[in-house]
């Protein structure tokens, strides 16, 4: 099972990176989402895949019996929600960028260039 999960996580990470390397902003956003899923799967794996038993304490028991590791699950749960918020905000940014610049290609979004060369020497600066 762990081989399958490792393969899935690795494949997702590769596909995600391939998409992030694109110059199309929407593809990049989707790729980031894929990469997030891949990382969540890897984190989940850190608790090992042993059993299908969820980490719930049975009625009548006072401590957790044989079950999946709850710690990575707690980490991944919030990571999923935060990754979701991140993706949506990036999509909103893409939308606004398209409204403002009329393009979704990252190499054509050059509003920052208008601010000038950050490395140009400033006159009157102390040395």
């Amino acid at each position: 099972m762990s081989v399958l999960l490792a393969l899935a996580a690795a494949g997702l990470a590769g596909c995600g990176l391939y998409m992030i390397l694109s110059r199309h902003v929407v593809r990049m956003v989707l790729g980031l989402s894929l990469l997030g899923t891949a990382v969540n799967l890897m984190l989940f794996q850190a608790g090992r895949v042993r059993t299908a038993q969820p980490p719930l304490i049975r009625e009548g028991a006072v401590r957790l019996g044989e079950s999946a590791d709850p710690v990575p699950q707690a980490l991944v749960l919030t990571a999923i929600v935060i990754g979701f918020a991140l993706t949506v905000i990036l999509a909103a940014l893409a939308l606004r960028a398209f409204r403002g610049e009329g393009t979704l290609r990252s190499d054509e979004l050059r509003a920052a260039r208008a601010l000038g060369d950050p490395l140009a020497p400033e006159p009157g600066r102390d040395r």
Partner: peptide, 11 residues
């Protein structure tokens, strides 16, 4: 689905 089948229904 992978989470569900590996003991993580919350996820």
């Amino acid at each position: 689905l992978l989470f569900l089948t590996n003991g993580a229904p919350d996820l």
